[in-house]
Simulated assay, not measured.
Amino acid sequence: MRSRTPVRGPELTELGLGAAQLGNLARTTSDEDAQGAVDAAWDSGVRYFDTAPHYGLGLSERRLGAALAQRPRAEYTVSTKVGRLLVPSPRTAHRQDDGGFAVPAAFRRRWDFGRDGILRSLEGSLHRLGLDHVDIVYLHDPDDHWQQAATTGIDTLVELRDQGLVKAVGVGMNQAAMLAEFVRRCDVDLVMVAGRHTLLDQSAQDELLPLAQERGVGVVAAAVYNSGLLAAARPPADATYDYLPASREVTDRAAAIADVCERHGTTLPEAAVAYPLRHPAVVSVVLGARDAHQSRTNARRLAASIPDALWAELAHLGLIPGGSAAPAASAAGGERS
């Protein structure tokens, strides 16, 4: 699997495994399926794994750490996130978590982008992962916490990076505008943009991607299926878009893109995975997987050959912006097996 090396930060495989589903996102995943998802991703060449305390109140980190425990530490990259500190909550442990994960509410999430909160959060993550360090730390969804996140939060992560405790620091969000402000004002190495650099939403191209390229900040693209609408060859009638029922307008647009894909011998999900990597600022696409089959499917989609004529027709029809050229080989970084 090909890898890309950002200007600042570790080499990342073009495909990363997003571990939210290992935390029982929306429904229960078995330990065996979680292990299978990681094993199949590894066998496919994936060496970048992303998680967060938020995902299943620590369950994702515990499962990911267990699944990687026998792998050579120098051969893979792990990112986790800070900003939601997990606080024990024994009085609610009999309830179901209300944060979107099928786990007991034995902890509550407390927003904290302060120095002590970040250090405590990272210490907990290392314990759950069974690691002595992670490679990348992102501030997680600081939408309503700009002031603290852009000052104390980033300063704390930079301190950890300068001490050699992490290799790269950044911010992960579901919006592009604030990420652009972090790139403009703060000393970040990477940003993870979820759902804003996709076949259906190119808002990251307005400011974030050009600015990141100019400043040498690597971009990790996540949620490239926009929560499901682009995950099947044809958009289903009950498809979701950004975690809500998809509107008729956006479903029709996805169907129009699917028509073009079929004319060029490819599929909508394959194009959805390939599209973000066409921009030279993007260093990896992170896809979630719940089991081995989904991990293998992700790898097959990445490996699909997408003809340039497909992108040209999509641009001609106004379905994607024109002028999005694939990065040169030198910008994409080196390859490894």
Rank of each mutant, 00 (worst) to 15 (best):
S3M: 03
R4T: 13
G9W: 05
L12D: 06
L15F: 11
L15N: 06
G18K: 14
A20I: 05
A20P: 10
A20F: 05
G23S: 13
G23V: 12
T28S: 09
D31V: 12
D33C: 04
A37F: 15
V38E: 01
W42P: 10
W42T: 10
W42N: 06
V46N: 09
R47D: 04
F49Y: 11
T51Y: 05
Y55A: 03
G56S: 00
G56I: 01
L57M: 08
G65F: 00
A66K: 05
A67R: 00
A67Y: 01
Q70D: 15
R73T: 14
T77Q: 14
T77F: 01
S79M: 03
S79P: 02
T80G: 06
K81M: 13
V82G: 00
L86F: 05
V87D: 03
S89H: 09
P90D: 09
R91H: 15
D98I: 10
G99T: 13
A105M: 11
A106E: 15
F107E: 07
R108L: 08
R108I: 15
R109D: 00
R109I: 05
R110T: 10
W111T: 14
D112R: 01
F113S: 07
R115V: 14
R115S: 15
R120F: 11
S121D: 15
L122A: 02
L126H: 13
L126Y: 06
R128C: 03
L129D: 12
H133Y: 15
H133K: 11
V134I: 08
V134K: 02
D135M: 02
D141K: 00
P142A: 07
W146A: 13
W146Y: 14
Q148H: 13
A149G: 03
A149D: 02
A150H: 13
T152W: 01
D155R: 04
E159G: 01
D162Q: 15
L165A: 15
A168Q: 04
G170H: 05
V171T: 06
V171Y: 10
G172S: 12
M173F: 07
Q175K: 06
M178K: 10
L179R: 02
R184F: 12
L190W: 02
A194F: 11
A194S: 14
D201K: 05
D201A: 11
D201I: 09
L211P: 06
G216Q: 04
G216T: 02
V220K: 00
A221E: 09
A223C: 10
A223S: 14
G228H: 08
A233H: 08
R234K: 08
D238C: 04
T240H: 07
T240V: 06
L244F: 12
P245F: 11
P245W: 09
S247M: 10
R253H: 06
A254T: 06
A256R: 15
I257S: 02
V260W: 04
C261M: 10
R263L: 07
E270A: 03
A272S: 15
V273D: 01
A274W: 07
H279P: 06
P280K: 00
V282F: 04
G288R: 06
R290Q: 07
D291I: 05
A292D: 05
Q294N: 02
I306W: 02
P307A: 01
P307S: 01
L317I: 07
G323V: 08
P327T: 00
A328S: 09
A329V: 03
S330G: 02
R336H: 08
